[in-house]
């Protein structure tokens, strides 16, 4: 598969690991995206992991 030059990704400032030296910007506490994720997390069944039974794999 022909991949694009991975270095081009450095130009995507908003998502690149190479963003400015101050590091990743934290999501604003009240912004809609954060609320959406919080809602998603609150919907998780607390017993989900207990009910999740798998068989041993490799």
């Amino acid at each position: 598969m022909e991949m694009n030059d991975p270095l081009r990704r450095e130009e995507k400032k908003e998502t690149s690991p190479d963003r400015d030296e101050s590091g990743p910007s934290s999501p604003e506490p009240s912004r809609p995206g954060k609320d959406n994720l919080l809602k998603r997390m609150k919907k998780v069944d607390p017993k989900q992991s207990e009910k999740y039974k798998q068989r041993t794999g490799q």
Binding site: K12, E14, T15, P27, G33, L37, R40, K43
Partner: peptide, 16 residues
């Protein structure tokens, strides 16, 4: 439902 998928949708994780 997936939490990583939610983070992707909000642009909160790096998209390689």
């Amino acid at each position: 439902r997936g939490l990583y998928r939610g983070l992707q949708q909000e642009g909160d994780v790096f998209s390689l």
